Amino acid sequence: MGRYLPIIMMVLLAIYCVVEVAQAPTYAVRRMPRWLWATAIICLPLVGPIGWLVLGRPNRESRNDSVKRPKAPDDDNDFLRGL
Score class of each variant (00 low, 15 high):
residue 59 N to Q: 06
residue 55 L to T: 03
residue 52 W to N: 07
residue 52 W to V: 09
residue 59 N to V: 06
residue 30 R to F: 01
residue 78 D to A: 13
residue 42 I to E: 01
residue 41 I to P: 01
residue 62 S to V: 03
residue 16 Y to R: 11
residue 77 N to A: 15
residue 56 G to M: 00
residue 26 T to V: 08
residue 51 G to P: 03
residue 78 D to R: 09
residue 27 Y to H: 15
residue 39 T to Q: 12
residue 19 V to K: 14
residue 65 D to E: 14
residue 21 V to E: 02
residue 39 T to E: 08
residue 12 L to K: 11
residue 73 P to T: 01
residue 5 L to D: 11
residue 30 R to C: 04
residue 10 M to V: 04
residue 27 Y to E: 15
residue 17 C to T: 07
residue 49 P to N: 00
residue 24 A to G: 06
residue 78 D to N: 14
residue 76 D to A: 08
residue 34 R to P: 08
residue 70 P to C: 10
residue 54 V to S: 10
residue 78 D to V: 02
residue 46 L to P: 03
residue 4 Y to N: 15
residue 14 A to H: 01
residue 8 I to S: 10
residue 74 D to P: 00
residue 14 A to G: 15
residue 82 G to Y: 03
residue 83 L to P: 00
residue 28 A to S: 09
residue 37 W to Y: 04
residue 44 L to E: 08
residue 29 V to F: 03
residue 16 Y to I: 02
residue 5 L to A: 13
residue 72 A to F: 10
residue 11 V to R: 13
residue 37 W to T: 04
residue 46 L to D: 01
residue 77 N to K: 12
residue 7 I to K: 13
residue 15 I to W: 04
residue 11 V to T: 10
residue 6 P to K: 02
residue 6 P to S: 00
residue 16 Y to F: 10
residue 38 A to K: 05
residue 74 D to C: 14
residue 11 V to E: 12
residue 7 I to R: 13
residue 48 G to E: 05
residue 10 M to L: 10
residue 16 Y to W: 09
residue 39 T to R: 12
residue 53 L to D: 01
residue 18 V to I: 11
residue 47 V to F: 11
residue 71 K to E: 15
residue 16 Y to T: 08
residue 13 L to H: 05
residue 36 L to C: 06
residue 33 P to S: 09
residue 34 R to V: 01
residue 63 R to W: 05
residue 13 L to Q: 14
residue 17 C to G: 04
residue 61 E to V: 05
residue 40 A to S: 13
residue 41 I to K: 04
residue 44 L to V: 03
residue 51 G to E: 05
residue 26 T to F: 00
residue 5 L to E: 11
residue 27 Y to N: 08
residue 54 V to G: 02
residue 21 V to R: 02
residue 42 I to M: 12
residue 57 R to W: 07
residue 39 T to Y: 14
residue 66 S to Q: 15
residue 9 M to V: 10
residue 10 M to W: 02
residue 61 E to Q: 13
residue 61 E to F: 06
residue 10 M to G: 06
residue 79 F to V: 09
residue 18 V to Q: 12
residue 80 L to F: 01
residue 26 T to P: 01
residue 28 A to W: 01
residue 83 L to T: 03
residue 66 S to T: 07
residue 83 L to W: 00
residue 74 D to A: 11
residue 1 M to T: 09
residue 10 M to K: 11
residue 68 K to L: 12
residue 6 P to R: 05
